[in-house]
Nucleic acid binder design. Structure first.
Length: 371
DNA sequence: GTCTTGAGGCTAACAT
DNA sequence: ATGTTAGCATCAAGAC
């Protein structure tokens, strides 16, 4: 390969660390992509592929201005790609030679934090699968935007794993290299999700507290790679993550994929539209948190009689008490997405408008609690 | 409405 | 040797 300019050397060094992601390389007012990234991105995003350099050996390039980068990120995330955002980390006026640059965050389908890329009414799950020597699987999930995590064991085959991944609509799954080489194609094609590899299997010290309620070592081993992946990709505070909860797959009714589709619980069969689904008819929720909970209830019906009765009696008491119900509705209208707001605060990318939303929401909390 | 320009880094090519 | 300039993705603001 021909000798590169200083900036291209810098680019290649950084790119080598993020082989599996599009590297958005900040250059002045633009994020630029080079080489194969440029060719692929130009094709996916339908933008012009150009080049830079001299008259010979020009380097393929495409780019977008910083103020409209979000829409392009969104397109790539929706297609399941990962993106590394590389910023200029010193003042160009002070810099001698090329300005220092660093990857400041990795955006992947399962770790998106930007509100405009997330659907309010749906969780955005990053899953993880561990395969144990006895043939069983560990299955875990985290929604980075709300901070919730849950884990279970699967005594079954790969189809049961696929069922679990499909039932939470996981966007991305963290697995070992060995697992990926065996099943990556199946997972990507059947479930349309992004597969990420993480080898580290020891639980990070900073995450021990989150796993304090897990009693079996298999459960902790399942979650460890997922937490490593989060630390590696996010480069930020993960303080808003809540304790990992254990659930048994027997708590919920198993509905096979085809039945679920035919019941049109959350989307219609032919158009995959929400409108017309059972969920869209039942959804009278006032908050995003409520909408996500309702969806969970529909997709994972309870089987334990006692729990079902409990849930019914709560619903019944609200049905019977018109005034309390209406008052509660009014108060909840003032409540914004607390789960995700908390995440943004811990994460350090909260803005003023969102802080005002947080204040209004918390203001309602005491009176709601009394009811 | 349509056309032109500049936004900010970096570099190749041309000018002194 | 050192200095100046043209170009280069898209988008929004300004000119017409």
């Amino acid at each position: 390969m021909a000798k590169q300019t200083p900036m291209m050397q810098q680019y290649l060094e950084i790119k080598a660390q993020y082989e599996d992601a599009f590297l958005f390389f900040r250059l002045g007012d633009f994020y630029e992509l080079f080489f194969e990234d440029a060719k692929k991105a130009a094709h996916e995003l339908e933008i012009t592929l150009t080049s830079r350099g001299g008259t010979h050996d020009r380097i393929p390039m495409c780019g977008v201005p910083y103020h409209s980068v979000d829409q392009y990120i969104q397109q790539l995330i929706e297609k399941g790609y990962k993106i590394a955002i590389c910023e200029q980390v010193e003042d160009p006026k002070e810099a001698k030679g090329v300005v220092k640059r660093e990857v400041v965050k990795l955006i992947t389908p399962g770790t998106v934090m930007e509100a405009n890329l997330l659907n309010d009414k749906e969780n955005n799950y990053l899953a993880t699968v561990a395969d144990f020597e006895d043939g069983s699987f560990g299955f875990g999930r985290t929604d980075l935007s709300t901070g919730e995590s849950a884990v279970t064991l699967i005594e079954g085959d790969l189809n049961d794993v696929i069922y679990e991944l499909a039932s939470i609509s996981a966007k991305e799954v963290v697995v070992s290299e060995a697992f990926a080489s065996k099943y990556e194609d199946t997972l990507e094609q059947q479930l349309n999700l992004t597969v990420s590899v993480e080898e580290e299997r020891e639980l990070p010290e900073s995450m021990e507290g989150l796993c304090s309620e897990l009693e079996q070592s298999k459960l902790i081993e399942t979650m460890a790679p997922l937490f490593h992946y989060l630390i590696k990709t996010q480069k930020r505070s993960l303080d808003h993550l809540q304790k990992v909860t254990y659930y048994s797959r027997n708590e919920y009714l198993k509905i096979d994929y085809h039945s679920k589709r035919n019941l049109e619980l959350t989307e219609t069969i032919r158009e995959k539209k929400k409108q017309g689904s059972l969920y869209s008819i039942l959804d009278k929720t006032e908050t995003s948190m409520g909408a996500r909970l309702l969806k969970k209830w529909l997709e994972q019906p309870l089987v334990d009689r006692k729990k079902i009765t409990e849930r019914h009696s709560v619903v019944q008491s609200l049905l019977d008490n018109f005034f309390i119900r209406e008052e509660l509705k009014d108060k909840l209208k003032e409540v914004y997405d607390l789960e995700r707001l908390a995440g943004k605060v811990a994460y350090g990318n909260v803005n003023a408008r969102e802080l005002v939303m947080l204040r209004r929401s918390l203001h309602q909390a005491p009176s709601i609690r009394i009811m």
